[in-house]
Design a protein around this nucleic acid. Structure first.
Length: 279
DNA sequence: AAGCTTTGACCTATA
DNA sequence: TTATAGGTCAAAGCT
């Protein structure tokens, strides 16, 4: 696996590299504990609605699935926990990322996927990369902070904010979100700076349901992504996880129904916002 | 009217 | 046992 580049992974997943620079690290990366249980770190990008607005499927939506994490395609060394990322050009260039991984201490006896915690910290200084600078500026302009941390923050899931707290260890307030999917216990904590910029995202628990993105409209087949194929592909490797992503057609249909509008809002957040403001 | 955010109060874990 | 911090609840208001 260590010889498999990220590009290869994408190619084998039926997703081209087009999205990579948008939501590149948006996914879980499994890390095996001594007990052989998967422990996830994730680099979940701050919401960048630009990508959502222009594309039906973001790369994070693929990587954000624990399905991928628990596969043999694990990008994290099972022994060292190191993240052997190879850049798009095959170079191990962490500077390509607007995020940096932060190790989250895990109890050695953590046994439940629902207790898994993933942390990502956004690097606030992106001035060395004009692309990232543009993203940051664009985000501030186009996406108010309340949308940045809102229900449809750009990880593909629906989130409901249930609390906000100013914590001592950070000068930025934390917002607490729960996944809106029925019976899903997944939560995330988003730390947002005063300027609305997300400085840290902590994921707790895994989703027990697929992402809504697989319901994306069929236009543009290059963006089509059927997580079911990954389920079948990675199921064997994921049996240690309590997260199950097998679901029936019926569940998929209800899922589509529930998230039908989410897609719409994700794709045109600024338009919707302007529309609201105009009313 | 449903679903969302806000926010103070409450609960729980930890030192 | 108590103080503190972090996390969650739930009522109220908003969209």
């Amino acid at each position: 696996m260590s010889s498999t580049s990220f590009s290869d992974l994408l190619a084998s997943s039926g997703v081209d590299c087009y999205e990579q620079d948008e939501d590149f690290l948006g996914g879980f990366y499994p890390e095996r504990t001594g007990l052989g249980l998967p422990k996830f770190k994730t680099a979940q990008p701050p919401p960048l609605p630009i990508s959502q607005a222009s594309h039906g499927f973001s790369f994070s939506e693929l990587l954000d699935s624990p399905l991928l994490l628990s596969s043999s395609h694990s990008l994290v060394s099972p022994t060292t926990g190191a993240f052997p990322y190879q850049g798009i050009n095959g170079t191990n260039n962490h500077l390509d990322f607007p995020w940096q991984l932060q190790t989250q201490p895990q109890p050695p006896n953590a046994t439940s996927a629902l207790q898994e915690t993933y942390v990502v910290q956004a690097i606030q200084k992106k001035q060395e990369d004009p692309v990232h600078r543009e993203f940051a500026a664009d985000r501030q302009v186009k996406v108010p902070s309340n949308m940045v941390v809102g229900r449809n923050s750009n990880d593909g899931y629906g989130w409901r904010k249930y609390g906000q707290k100013q914590v001592k260890k950070s000068e930025n307030p934390r917002s607490y979100f729960k996944c809106t999917y029925p019976n899903c216990v997944s939560k995330k904590i988003v730390e947002t700076a005063s300027d609305g910029q997300v400085t840290e995202i902590i994921y707790k628990g895994g989703h027990n349901h697929p992402k809504p993105e697989f319901t994306r409209r069929p236009s543009g087949s290059r963006r089509m992504f059927n997580p079911s194929s990954i389920v079948s592909e990675t199921h064997d490797q994921s049996e240690n996880s309590s997260i199950s992503f097998e679901y029936s057609d019926l569940e998929q249909k209800s899922f589509k129904s529930e998230y039908g509008e989410v897609e719409e809002e994700e794709e045109q957040p600024e338009i919707k916002r302007l529309k609201r403001e105009g009313e």
